[in-house]
Simulated assay, not measured.
Amino acid sequence: MRTRVLSLVLALGAALGAALTVLGAGPAQAAGYRYWSFWQSGGGKWTYATEGPATARPSDGSVNGFRFSVSEDSGDSAQPRTAPDFEAICGRTPPKDDTKRIALVIDSGTQADAPEGETPPASRSACAQVGKDATSAEALASVAKPLRYNSEALLCAISGYPESGCGEQVATKPKPKAKPSESAASASAASKSGSDHKGGPSVGLIAGLAAVAVLGTAAVWQSRRRRG
């Protein structure tokens, strides 16, 4: 009998340790990619391009944008921070026969997205006047050399930035922590309800219940031992 009760105590203790380990573990960091995203204008807004700059053939009066950032996917990708305004960029460039004018916005991003040891160049705009059949990549090359591509034709660098790397995977930055007052309020609410912010039992509540169960079982075992 004593052996059976002792086994139960040990099992409950192990369950408590496992619960604290699982609940105390932090969320895994999401993976993102550091790269130049390609954007096109539409209705005065930026739209993520559905094809690469090497195949896109914009018409005269188009605006193309390039933004360097760390993004998890196209829906999470940062847009160029300059509005797609053709007149503001190309308004002073007169049209010529057999050419087209493409307004380009080149946004090198922020220091937080830069590779270690590098500083992003200042963002800039330029008006590319190229042949009527030119691609977006050719328009970009006319105003922002040198460009660098990898073996899969992925655009890796504009005007030499960044110096190395191409679409490498990096850990995305964690979301900002709640303010101290917000954290205190959340902790107070969780304490009163006996649950965490996701609606499940809190670590403290589970630990308390498991500890009570372990101590209660131990007390029963001790009482029976004395009687015996």
Rank of each mutant, 00 (worst) to 15 (best):
M1Y: 15
R4M: 10
S7W: 07
L12C: 10
A19C: 08
G26E: 15
A28T: 07
A30Q: 15
Y35T: 15
Q40H: 10
Q40G: 09
G42F: 01
G44Q: 04
E51M: 12
A54G: 02
P58C: 06
S62F: 10
N64I: 12
S69D: 12
S71M: 11
D76I: 01
A78P: 02
P84K: 14
F86G: 09
E87S: 08
C90Q: 06
K100E: 05
K100C: 11
K100W: 00
I102D: 10
L104S: 08
G117S: 04
G117H: 07
P120A: 10
P121I: 12
R124H: 12
C127G: 08
Q129G: 07
G131D: 14
D133F: 13
T135A: 00
V143F: 14
N150D: 15
S151Q: 13
S151D: 14
S151N: 12
Y161Q: 05
P162Y: 09
S164T: 06
S164W: 03
K175R: 13
A178D: 12
P180N: 08
E182M: 00
S186N: 11
S188F: 07
G194M: 06
S195T: 06
G199S: 00
G200F: 01
V203Y: 01
L205P: 02
I206W: 04
A207L: 02
G208H: 00
A213N: 05
T217F: 01
R226Y: 12
